[in-house]
Write a protein that binds this DNA or RNA. Structure first.
Length: 464
DNA sequence: AGCACA
């Protein structure tokens, strides 16, 4: 910016653009004449003729900025001015970077509307509200919403362009009624144009897209639930229905896995009612039954892909079983029903290469107490809304003996993100989950009483 | 002869 000049400096201060502004053109100059003039300097991608009150101006857009610069430069230093039909044409850079012609899009009536909802975020206007508003003009076939730079937008598909036009004429520039919006939304104007689409491709019923012509379209669970499942495949991989019974496939079985081992691992998340182990396709599988779906879901999320033993041994893959109540008869190392009162119990198997985590248990103990009330899968509050009382010292006592096995060892999570496959159970992923549901100190308590009823995160139901 | 369209 020059401080010495008080003069307006039109052409010298103009920033180059691949769009050129041409004036003093002959009356009703045609596009062909513009092309003839400009073509020697580059590829013309768009034009706009007959601009201005006298219809003697035009815009020409080159494919490349350098082509526009070359044309301006050429005529700036040429002794022959640019001419059309013998008339001198004045050329300068346009103050816009591209030509926008209204004929290309937005005004061609189609059956699909592009609606920009101004002044709101995506969460403010539900797809049901959009459906309600736009259904006033006819049957809405499909809705797809998305967020772009322009803001929160929706594509709304009607049967025909007449219906779409009626909706557009009635609603463009109007606002969605206040009572349909959250209180904090102060303005919510609709900007409506026609989309070039004729048939939207809706893959899932979700909070961002609907197909009202196909009620059998699968529901995208992650989209319905919200944002809590980033682990779901980008292709919207179908999930089996949830169940209180988990099916565990155990990969790389280097060490024995008995019901006792599984019980210890899965009890971290809640009471395990029944376990059954069986062979399938040469691999080992197990069914683990919880009292409720929520507990099973937490266990599944937490344990999926993790290994019972360090070193990638006995890696767990979890899915929901179709069973809801296992028929476990035998009580042996392959199956057990923990809901049946029992007497003498098992000894812990010798587990090699065991993990750290005892210190983590202690460190997280307070957090476990604090978060128990609202953590997913935590024990349900009693009828008075209180958590069942339990004595932390009792449970702590059951586990505190453990660290003596590895004195001085501190809890140090391995870089899980780098080695997810070998990440062991006691270094489980989510920190919040770790806090509320500490991982089992498996194998660190050779003499500890097996927590058959007093599993981690659960109240003690009988005095020890 | 000096910048469209919404």
């Amino acid at each position: 910016m020059s401080s010495t000049s008080g003069q307006p400096q039109f052409r010298y201060t103009q920033t180059p653009s691949k769009v050129l502004h041409l004036r003093n053109l002959p009356w009703e100059c045609t596009e062909e004449e513009l092309v003839e003039l400009c073509n020697p300097f580059g590829k013309i991608v768009n034009t706009k003729c007959n601009v201005g009150a006298n219809r003697n101006q035009a815009f020409v857009e080159f494919a490349d900025l350098n082509q526009a610069i070359s044309m301006v430069s050429y005529y700036a230093s040429s002794s022959e001015p640019a001419q059309v039909r013998g008339k001198t044409v004045y050329i300068q850079y346009s103050n816009r970077q591209e030509i926008t012609n209204n004929k290309s899009s937005g005004d061609v009536a189609g059956n699909v509307l592009l609606v920009t909802i101004e002044g709101v975020e995506a969460g403010d206007v539900s797809i049901d509200v959009i459906h309600l508003v736009f259904s006033a003009f006819g049957f809405v076939h499909k809705i797809a919403t998305f967020e772009k730079a322009a803001g929160f937008q929706a594509l709304i598909q009607y049967t025909d362009s007449e219906t779409a036009s009626n909706a557009r004429n009635a609603l463009d520039g109007r606002s969605i009624p206040r009572y349909l919006l959250p209180e904090h939304v102060t303005s919510c104007h609709l900007r409506i144009s026609f989309s070039a689409h004729t048939d939207l491709n809706i893959k899932f019923q979700s909070h961002r897209s609907r197909d009202y012509t196909n009620p059998y379209l699968p529901v995208n669970p992650s989209a319905i639930e919200g944002t809590l499942q980033p682990a779901l495949g980008p292709d919207g991989k179908k999930k089996e229905p949830e169940s209180n019974v988990l099916l565990a496939s155990i990969e790389n079985m280097q060490y024995a896995v008995t019901v006792d081992v599984l019980h210890k691992v899965f009890s971290t998340f809640g009471t395990v009612q029944k376990i059954a182990i069986f062979e399938k396709n040469g691999g080992m599988q197990a069914l683990i039954q919880y009292p409720d779906v929520t507990t099973a879901a937490v266990a599944k999320e937490s344990l999926e892909g993790h290994c019972i033993y360090e070193g990638g041994y006995c890696k767990l893959h979890l899915s929901y079983s179709r069973h809801t109540d296992l028929n476990v008869k035998a009580h042996n190392d392959r199956s057990r029903d923990y809901t049946i009162p029992e007497t003498g119990m098992l000894t812990m198997p010798q587990a090699p290469g065991l993990l750290t985590g005892a210190a983590g248990w202690q460190a997280n103990h307070q957090a476990a107490t604090m978060y128990a009330g609202n953590a997913v899968g935590a024990p349900a509050p009693g009828p008075n809304g209180q958590m069942p009382t339990w004595d932390p010292s009792v449970r702590g006592g059951a586990y505190v003996a453990a660290p003596s096995t590895y004195p001085g060892q501190t809890f140090a999570p391995p870089p899980v993100s780098h080695y997810p496959a070998s990440a062991a159970i006691s270094s489980a992923p989510a920190e919040s989950l770790q806090a509320s549901q500490p991982m089992p100190q498996y194998g660190l308590l050779p003499n500890a009483r097996p927590p058959t009823t007093a599993s981690a995160g659960q109240p003690l139901y009988y005095p020890s």
